[in-house]
């Protein structure tokens, strides 16, 4: 998975002089991203996987719920490329359908957590003082509330709804992001270029979002790529509580959990979901690293 040819890459020392003039920073970043083979690879894999999950089932001769009790636990074969599960259902079909859920949960819930966490953390870190204190104590409180109880209550009051899944996950996953962003913002708040921006009379939102956040993208992106697998697996736990996917629909987290219980007898039930899960995460990670490098303002000024 690691291509040796991408050594000595990319952005850190790539920034042709002509790009310095007249080209927007986004286009600039896009050019740098495109030269990062690993990032391109990651991006392509994610897109291909997403397309497969959405379109693949259309070409499958099986339904995700279609059981065949006479053909349970069959190993991979010509008719079932990835084998069948405990009800004789086609694993490939279930994996693709499950991918729709997992990718959606992984990306949307993470995006929710990312948005809330970054904005909240940036405001607290930049404002400091009493506002920061109150905001951080609220974070402490939310950390401590019992998650299981919270999820069950959500369902009791709002019924079961896939949107609640994002609320439930978003509600816990943004906390650490907020604390990381706050710490980073505080650490660069007193730096010269921020002081300079302030003395130029730029507005606070502009300072935060145009000057500070680009400078702390690294940890944000890294933590985001850490959040995605956590979110996808958390979905399996929420399904256990009754929120999340309803059987016979499945998700990667649930498939991996099922597979883990039978890894000795029917290893394909763990290996295939595990592989596709890891492939996705690796790809997102390469993409994330590439993005970080491409958007690195300082490196670009070399």
């Amino acid at each position: 998975m690691i291509s040796p040819s991408s050594e000595k890459l990319p952005s850190a020392n790539v920034a042709p002089a002509q790009l310095e003039h007249g080209v927007s920073p986004w286009l600039d970043a896009w050019h740098r991203l495109r030269r990062n083979h690993l990032a391109v690879f990651g991006g392509v894999v994610v897109i291909v996987l997403s397309l497969l999950c959405v379109l693949g089932p259309l070409f499958s001769p099986y339904g995700y719920q279609q059981t065949n009790l006479e053909n349970t636990f069959s190993p991979p074969s010509a008719s079932h490329w990835l084998g069948t599960d405990q009800l004789g259902r086609d694993l490939l079909t279930r994996l693709l359908f499950g991918g729709q859920i997992s990718l959606m949960v992984g990306l949307i819930a993470t995006a929710v957590a990312l948005t809330i966490g970054v904005i909240y953390g940036a405001i607290a870190g930049y404002a400091g003082g009493n506002l920061d204190r109150v905001m951080m104590r609220i974070v402490d409180i939310l950390y401590a509330l019992p998650f299981t109880i919270f999820v069950i209550l959500l369902m009791v009051f709002f019924g079961r709804d896939i949107k609640l899944l994002f609320v439930a996950i978003g509600a816990v996953e943004w906390l650490t992001m907020a604390r990381i962003v706050r710490g980073q913002i505080m650490s660069i708040k007193r730096m010269e270029f921020i002081e300079a921006a302030r003395s130029l009379g730029l507005g606070t939102p502009r300072i935060i979002f145009r000057h500070m956040i680009p400078n702390i993208l690294g940890p944000i992106i890294v933590y985001t790529t850490l959040t995605i697998p956590g979110v996808m697996l958390l979905e399996a736990f929420l399904s256990f509580l009754g929120l999340g996917v309803q059987p016979p629909m499945s998700s990667w987290g649930v498939l991996i959990k099922d597979g883990a219980e039978r890894m000795e007898e029917y290893p394909w039930l763990l290996i295939f979901p595990g592989t596709i899960f890891s492939l996705t995460l690796f790809s997102l990670n390469f993409l994330g690293d590439g993005l970080r490098d491409a958007l690195d303002v300082r490196a670009a000024k070399d």
Partner: peptide, 15 residues
């Protein structure tokens, strides 16, 4: 109630 074996039986009966 959430338990693998109950789920599988429910899925089979549903079908």
């Amino acid at each position: 109630n959430t338990l693998d074996s109950h789920r599988v039986i429910a899925e089979a009966i549903q079908q």
